Amino acid sequence: MTASPDFLRIHGYASLQPGPRLMVLGGVHGNETCGTAGIERIAAELDAGSLALLRGQLTMVPVANPLARRRLRREGERNLNRLFRPTAPGAEPADYEARITDLLCPLLDRHEVLLDLHSFQSEGEAFAMIGPRDNQGPLEPFSRAFEEGQLALHLGTPRVVEGWLDIYAAGLAQRAGGRPADDAALAFGWGTNEYMRSRGGYGVTLECGQHEDPAAPEVAHAAILSTLRLLGMIAPDPQRPPPSRPSLLRLVSVTDRLHADDRFVREWATFDPVARGEPIGVRADGSLLGAERDGFLVFPNAEALPGTEWFYFAVESERDLTRKP
């Protein structure tokens, strides 16, 4: 793979007919290449004329973090999908990712829908992640949950996972001995979708599969097409069946890896089911870590650094994405 330059390559398409404004991101993490491949394929199809943008505006960034891609690592200097807010006026960007964020935020400001394409370290099937339900709370007020849910449904994954920022906040409180996290700490939990929601839009993260899964680029490509069809930005596919209803899970907790000698009892995959009390890992002191209740593991990461997320835990959700609240 050739080295990635320190600039963002941005594909922009604008129809003469007004319509939705969609932003698609790939390569937010440098070792996640499927989104890049999917975006490059869509761009080639648009450029060749085999795909036509009928209305609206489409902007795609195939490699959102060039430094991380050049290193083929998750991060450049830090996680781009955290602390995703522009630098305060008059201040200097704190790091490489802050400079990238300062370029991406104005782009997101001009759009109303975000599709952020990712992959994950452990084995497992593709899934979509959505944010909160409609609410006026202080953490993440939101009013477009139905539209966001419809987008997730049309991506065609067998599972959709809801919730992130509230679980992140709970994890911060857990690390602080039960004290609620302050605004500065919570800001680090903001990613691309949280920023888009804060600007009045909505967004879905699509986890296209395991990093090296050869099917993941196809998942990314199909997801962009599905999003464009849902928004009426390209012609519908009369042969495509209506989306089937996926399993919906809700994140309820996150567990950190505390020591380099913490280890899993076996190799886990995302969405592996576990029963209450079933051993998941062994702490460095030899104590067993069991499942808090019946549920599913999400993002188990045997390579997590001490003090970072080791795995998330999810349970079945009662939410119905097909109904307006």
Score class of each variant (00 low, 15 high):
229 R>Y: 11
171 G>S: 12
269 A>N: 07
51 L>T: 12
13 Y>H: 15
50 S>M: 13
123 E>Q: 14
150 Q>H: 10
155 L>V: 09
93 P>H: 13
193 N>Y: 00
248 L>E: 02
86 P>L: 00
35 G>V: 13
61 V>L: 07
119 S>C: 11
12 G>W: 13
258 L>N: 08
106 P>T: 06
84 F>S: 14
283 R>A: 04
48 A>M: 11
114 L>R: 02
208 C>V: 03
289 L>Q: 13
257 R>F: 06
127 F>M: 05
190 W>G: 10
106 P>S: 03
262 D>E: 05
38 G>N: 07
75 E>P: 09
226 S>G: 13
151 L>T: 01
39 I>T: 04
272 D>P: 06
133 R>I: 14
280 I>H: 00
190 W>K: 09
160 V>P: 01
251 L>M: 14
19 G>A: 14
203 G>N: 07
164 W>C: 00
183 D>W: 03
67 L>P: 07
63 V>M: 09
225 L>Q: 10
65 N>R: 08
120 F>D: 05
144 R>N: 02
192 T>D: 03
150 Q>Y: 04
173 A>V: 02
184 A>M: 04
48 A>P: 06
177 G>S: 09
314 A>L: 02
211 H>T: 06
143 S>K: 13
120 F>Y: 12
271 F>P: 03
194 E>I: 01
25 L>C: 07
239 Q>H: 15
220 A>C: 07
153 L>Q: 09
200 G>A: 05
14 A>D: 13
23 M>D: 03
205 T>A: 07
300 P>R: 04
198 S>W: 00
200 G>Q: 03
180 P>M: 06
158 P>R: 03
313 F>V: 01
156 G>N: 03
240 R>P: 08
87 T>R: 04
306 P>D: 08
276 R>A: 15
127 F>R: 03
32 E>R: 02
63 V>G: 00
62 P>F: 05
84 F>N: 12
17 Q>L: 15
314 A>N: 02
94 A>K: 15
141 P>M: 10
190 W>H: 10
305 L>Y: 13
197 R>P: 00
185 A>K: 00
262 D>H: 02
193 N>D: 04
323 R>I: 13
222 A>Q: 15
186 L>A: 01
256 D>H: 10
287 S>T: 10
80 L>C: 09
55 R>N: 09
156 G>K: 02
45 E>W: 05
63 V>A: 01
249 L>M: 10
11 H>E: 08
196 M>V: 15
230 L>V: 15
318 E>T: 14
57 Q>T: 13
273 P>M: 03
254 V>F: 12
324 K>P: 11
162 E>R: 08
176 A>W: 07
306 P>A: 09
117 L>C: 06
259 H>C: 05
148 E>T: 08
289 L>G: 01
126 A>T: 13
223 A>M: 11
29 H>T: 07
234 I>R: 03
243 P>Q: 01
295 G>R: 05
91 A>V: 08
150 Q>M: 15
118 H>L: 00
177 G>M: 11
261 D>S: 11
194 E>M: 03
323 R>T: 15
175 R>I: 11
116 D>V: 06
